[in-house]
Amino acid sequence: MATGGRRGAAAAPLLVAVAALLLGAAGHLYPGEVCPGMDIRNNLTRLHELENCSVIEGHLQILLMFKTRPEDFRDLSFPKLIMITDYLLLFRVYGLESLKDLFPNLTVIRGSRLFFNYALVIFEMVHLKELGLYNLMNITRGSVRIEKNNELCYLATIDWSRILDSVEDNYIVLNKDDNEECGDICPGTAKGKTNCPATVINGQFVERCWTHSHCQKVCPTICKSHGCTAEGLCCHSECLGNCSQPDDPTKCVACRNFYLDGRCVETCPPPYYHFQDWRCVNFSFCQDLHHKCKNSRRQGCHQYVIHNNKCIPECPSGYTMNSSNLLCTPCLGPCPKVCHLLEGEKTIDSVTSAQELRGCTVINGSLIINIRGGNNLAAELEANLGLIEEISGYLKIRRSYALVSLSFFRKLRLIRGETLEIGNYSFYALDNQNLRQLWDWSKHNLTITQGKLFFHYNPKLCLSEIHKMEEVSGTKGRQERNDIALKTNGDQASCENELLKFSYIRTSFDKI
Rank of each mutant, 00 (worst) to 15 (best):
H28V: 08
P316I: 08
I306A: 08
D288L: 13
S54G: 01
K217P: 13
T85M: 04
L120R: 01
E147D: 03
P31Y: 15
Y30S: 05
L289F: 06
D261S: 10
S98L: 01
I62C: 02
E97D: 04
T107F: 05
L29I: 01
D177Q: 01
G142L: 02
V200T: 10
Q287P: 12
H236W: 01
G333P: 04
C264E: 00
T211M: 04
N43G: 11
S77K: 08
C311R: 05
T329R: 12
A190Q: 15
Y319H: 11
W210T: 05
F258M: 04
T320E: 08
R208P: 14
D247E: 04
I56C: 03
D177V: 04
I56R: 13
Y154A: 10
K224Q: 08
R92L: 15
Y94L: 15
N242W: 13
L327N: 11
C239Q: 01
N309W: 06
N170P: 05
N308M: 09
Q216M: 14
S143I: 04
P313S: 11
D261P: 04
Y118S: 09
L76M: 06
Q61M: 05
Y171I: 13
V206I: 05
D165T: 08
C255R: 00
N42Q: 11
D169W: 04
H290M: 12
I306D: 04
R46C: 15
M125C: 06
E130S: 08
C215F: 13
L120H: 00
T229V: 07
D248A: 06
G192S: 13
R74Q: 05
N149Q: 04
D277Q: 09
M125V: 04
S296P: 05
P79S: 07
T320P: 03
Y87C: 00
N257L: 03
C196R: 13
C252I: 00
R41Y: 00
G227Y: 10
N179A: 10
C186Y: 02
I84L: 03
N149T: 07
L260A: 08
P220L: 06
N242C: 12
K193T: 12
I56Q: 00
I122K: 00
G58M: 00
C286V: 07
L131I: 14
N195M: 09
C223A: 06
S237T: 07
V218L: 13
P79Q: 11
L47P: 03
N52R: 11
N309T: 10
S317I: 08
F78M: 08
T250K: 11
L164D: 05
G241H: 05
R41M: 02
F258R: 05
C252A: 00
P269R: 00
C35S: 00
D178N: 13
N179S: 08
S77D: 04
C234V: 01
D159F: 00
L89R: 02
E181H: 02
Q276P: 03
H214M: 14
T189A: 10
Q276R: 08
H212V: 05
P36H: 03
W160Y: 04
R110N: 04
C239D: 00
S324P: 14
N325Y: 05
S324H: 15
L128R: 00
P336R: 07
V173P: 12
K224F: 07
H274R: 07
L120A: 12
L102V: 11
C335K: 01
L102H: 00
H236K: 02
L102G: 02
E231F: 15
H214F: 14
K294Y: 13
I185V: 14
P70H: 06
G300A: 10
C280Q: 01
G192R: 06
H28I: 06
D169C: 05
C239T: 00
H59I: 05
E57N: 10
L76C: 04
D75C: 07
D288P: 02
D248T: 03
D72N: 15
L106W: 01
V218W: 06
L152W: 01
V206Q: 14
P334N: 11
D159R: 07
T211Y: 06
N135W: 02
P79D: 04
T199E: 07
N170V: 10
D165V: 09
L88M: 13
L260I: 13
C53E: 00
S213H: 11
P269Y: 06
P269L: 08
E238L: 04
G132R: 01
H226I: 08
A198V: 07
C315K: 01
L96I: 04
T250D: 04
C182W: 04
N105W: 02
P330E: 13
G142D: 01
C252V: 00
L260M: 02
T85F: 02
N138R: 15
K80P: 01
G111C: 01
V173M: 04
D177C: 12
L88C: 01
V305K: 12
W278P: 01
D75A: 04
Q287I: 13
T189Q: 08
G203N: 12
H127D: 08
D159E: 12
L50K: 00
S161E: 13
L152G: 01
R110Q: 12
S323P: 13
L289W: 03
R162W: 14
T140G: 06
T157Y: 07
S296V: 15
G203T: 07
H28Q: 09
H226Y: 13
E124T: 01
Q245H: 12
T211F: 07
E168G: 10
A119C: 03
E314K: 09
Y30I: 01
N309P: 03
E314F: 01
G333Y: 12
C53N: 00
S324W: 12
I312L: 12
K129T: 14
Y94Q: 15
I163E: 01
L164Q: 04
D86G: 04
Y171H: 12
S77M: 15
A156P: 11
S112F: 04
Y118P: 00
W160K: 02
V121D: 00
Y273W: 14
N149H: 01
Y134M: 13
D39M: 14
V305Q: 05
D177L: 10
D86W: 02
H59W: 04
E180F: 05
V93P: 00
C223L: 02
Q61I: 14
L96F: 02
E238Q: 06
P187T: 10
Y272H: 04
V200G: 15
D247F: 06
K67R: 13
P187N: 12
D177S: 03
K294M: 06
K148H: 02
L96W: 03
R74F: 06
G232I: 03
R256F: 08
T189F: 11
I306Q: 08
C335T: 06
P316W: 02
F115A: 14
F115C: 04
F103K: 00
L114W: 02
G37Q: 13
K67D: 08
I312M: 09
V55A: 04
F283Y: 12
R145I: 05
I62R: 00
G188R: 07
C255W: 01
E181S: 07
